[in-house]
Write a protein that binds this DNA or RNA. Sequence first.
DNA 1: CCAACTTGTAACCAAATAGTTATATCATGC
DNA 2: GCATGATATAACTATTTGGTTACAAGTTGG
Lengths: 231, 231
Amino acid sequence: MAARARQQTENKAEADADKTERMRSTKVSRNPQRTHAAILEAATEEFAAHGFGGARVDAIAARAQTNKRMLYHYFGDKEGLYLAVLEATYATIRDAEKQLDLARRRPEEGMRELALFTWRHFLAHPEFLSLLATENLHHAHYLQRSEKVSVMHSHLIDELSDVLHRGEAAGIFRPAVDPISVYLTIAALGFFYLSNRHTLSTIFARKLTAPDALNAWGEHIVAVTLASIRV
Amino acid sequence: MAARARQQTENKAEADADKTERMRSTKVSRNPQRTHAAILEAATEEFAAHGFGGARVDAIAARAQTNKRMLYHYFGDKEGLYLAVLEATYATIRDAEKQLDLARRRPEEGMRELALFTWRHFLAHPEFLSLLATENLHHAHYLQRSEKVSVMHSHLIDELSDVLHRGEAAGIFRPAVDPISVYLTIAALGFFYLSNRHTLSTIFARKLTAPDALNAWGEHIVAVTLASIRV
DNA sequence: CCAACTTGTAACCAAATAGTTATATCATGC
DNA sequence: GCATGATATAACTATTTGGTTACAAGTTGG
């Protein structure tokens, strides 16, 4: 989410600056949206890097080039900030998933598309994986508080169900395959490989993050997923 | 590891107490092995529950029913204690893996055995999964310092290679299957399901940890693994 | 243009935290 | 049987931490 958030923030900040300058041509020495977004982005990095307990509020304020007063002003306390980070990160995922439109693809192509989409998404958002690991350490304590995240992946599961049914009708996928199991399988293969890459490469002495290795694992996910649902 | 460590500790403690009482029949008010093991067990729980940054040294000392002086006496500092926990936890895994003897099993049975073993092992050792997640958050910083953990899974990979070769020779497995990819597949399916169960069940509103669901997922791992390597 | 409100800074505080010291007690080799 | 080192306790300290307060300065509606 970091890159995207920064992009949006800067765009908004520039727009605000332009408007203000057109009106009175003063130096922009305050900019609430920018400060808010800068804190959120800094917090995302800090929480992803150190976990909830390891994250330092002072460090977040410093990284956002503001101070703690603003942080507490916008987000209440450390937990509120953490929850805001979680929700913003999930929102990014949800937005990205909307890009998927598998309805017109042939079943096997659709499954390939879905698996590679998930894999590339994990690759592009390492902070999402880290936050997920941290949140699970805390038994999803904070995520459960959020009303916004409840019906999160329904779009994805709907699209997946459709693909599976069409594959079944065409006689190439087994009948009554559970879409959630299929999704968990795809997510598991991508998540584990990336989130555990450091301990895995320490143990196996293998460069898991070389570009070739990453592409190969993406194809591996596709192959395993298809093999597991074909008749 | 917790249960096993506690068991060993208590056995040793009892043996020591017996010996001491036979010799002079004094109350046992000091017992280095027990203290050492109690600290290690308490630290395992604390680090697994809160991560490195979230773990509290005072809490560990209190949980071990000793005090910080002893903790620093035996383990140097917080990082030394964390490293000791990591090494002890990996040692438990390594010991368990030695129970595996797949050499005489038919290939498909061997694969099933290996997958279920890994799954049951993860189920029995949730603290291992949490510590792994924490360690990866820190880019395996501490694990890399340990010389002891380098050639960790070699036994497992050797056994797996043998099973794959025999399956290939029998014409039921595809040729030149990469054993590490197969192991990663098995581990990924188990690890992700368990370590992310809290966020997953929040999102999907499904009880992932019901006994039936757990058994079903174990069979799912077996089925997916076999489907991915069969000719 | 000014009163009310928002955004910002920096100094401050109480509690928590990792790590230490002083000191006492147990065990044991000589 | 006692000198010595290992094991234990609890009080202590310096620093860090999350969170607050006093106050300054920018912004805006009337």
